[in-house]
Each structure stands twice: as C-alpha cells, then as structure tokens.
Amino acid sequence: MAKGKLSFEEALARLEKIVAELEKGDFTLEESLKKFEEGLVLGKECREFLDKAEGRIRELVEEKEGQITEKDVTDEF
C-alpha cells in the first residue's frame, strides 16, 4: 500500500470494524451505504496488495565502511 495511505494492517482492521458495524446495523441507509462502499474498496485494496507482483530478494554487502552495495538475487532462490 502506498505511503501515506493506510497500511495493510490498518486497512484490514478498518474493514473488520466496518463489517462489525454493518452487522449491528445502527446506521441510516445512507451511512450504511457509505460504510459498505468503503468496506468494499478496502477489501479490494487489500486483495490487490496481496496479489501484487512478487517480492524481491536483495543481497546487501558493505564493501567499505558505510558503503553498501545492493544486488538483486531473486532469481537465485
């Protein structure tokens, strides 16, 4: 999830809260709909986040003091 937006964990927690609130159903129809839509968007974003391109594996070696070289070694695993 992009920076500044909700983290995956926060988005999931928010979704859980919305689901519980809608179950209880103490909102007006408009409020419920708003929550419902927000919940669907959150669920979709979380899903997309999980399905995003695979994570990378990088190897970090300090060549000289404080000078770190980074190498992508994803294909080696």
Partner: peptide, 27 residues
Amino acid sequence: LITEVGAKLDAMTEQLVQSMQNRIELR
C-alpha cells in the same frame, strides 16, 4: 499464510455484502 489471509478477506467481503443485502431486503 497468504491463503489464510486471502480467505479471511473474502469472508469479510461476503459478510459485508450479506449485511447490506439484509438491510435492503428489509427496506
């Protein structure tokens, strides 16, 4: 496990749709 997290997400989305649907049916 990604499959477990995915299943949880699906279940929550379903629950969301279900409770909205109940609401609308009532209405």
